[in-house]
Amino acid sequence: MIWAFLQRRWWLTENRILTTISTALMLPVILYISIVAVMENIIPRSIDGVVYTQWVFPGLIMIIATLGLVPLLYRDFFDLRIHRHVLQPVTLTPITKFEIIAGIIITAIIESVCFVLISLFVLLILIPMSVPVYSYFILIFYVILFNGVMANVLITISLLAERVTTYLIILLSFLMFILFSSGILVDFEFYPPLLSQVFANLPTSVLMAGIRQIMFFNRFDYLSLIYPMIVIVVWFAVNGILYKTKAHQ
C-alpha cells in the first residue's frame, strides 16, 4: 500500500521538481533575512547562553519543514477532497481510512524531509554552526516527529473545514500560534510565567527543547521523544475516525 502512495508522491514531485527545489533554496534565505538578521540584534544570546543565530537554527528548520508540509496536506485533504473529490476513488479501494491517512502523512513527511535537507545546506552556509555532525541526523529525526504532530493538526483542520476561507483563517491562526508558543523563535523565559509553563508542555515545544538539549548541551531527554510520539499516535487515531465520519462510508 505504501508503495502506491510513495509512487504517487514521486509523480507529483517530479511534475513540479524545479519549483520545489527553488523554493527549498530560497526559503532559508528569506527566513534568515526576515527573522535571524533582525532578531540577533534584539536577542544576542538565549537564556542558556547559546548564540541566538545558532539557537534559532533548529527552529528555522522546523518552520521550513512545516512550510514544506502545509501545501501537500492542504492539497490532498482539503482542496482535492472538497473541490474535486479526488480522495473518493481511493476510499473505494480495499484499504482502510487509517491506511489512507498513514499513506499520505508518511509520504508527505518524506517529501518535506527532502525539502528540509536542501534548505539545511543553504542555512548552514548562512549560519555557521559549532555542533557535532551527528546532531544533524538527530535533528532530522526530530523534524520527522515535529512534522508528525503538525501533519495530524493540518489533517484535522482540513477535514473539519468545508470552505477555503475558514480553512485559511484557522490555518494561519494555528501557524502563528505554533510559531510563538513552541519556542521556535523566542525562549519561553521571555513569556509571562503562566503562559511559559503552558506553552512549554505542548508536544511541539517539548520537541524543540529536546533537540536543543542534544545539539547544544549534549543532553538527551527520553520524554522529549515519547510524549510527542504518544500524541502523534492518538491524534492519528482521532483523524482516522474523523475521516471515516466525514466520508459517510
Binding site: M1, W3, A4, Q7, R8, W11, L12, N15, R16, L80, R84, V86, P89, V90, T93, P94, I95
Partner: peptide
C-alpha cells in the same frame, strides 16, 4: 488528480 497524467491516475488506483 489534475496534477497527474491519465496513466498515473489509473495506475495509482490499480496499485491500491
Amino acid at each position: 488528480d489534475p496534477w497527474l497524467t491519465v496513466e498515473q491516475n489509473i495506475r495509482f488506483i490499480g496499485m491500491l
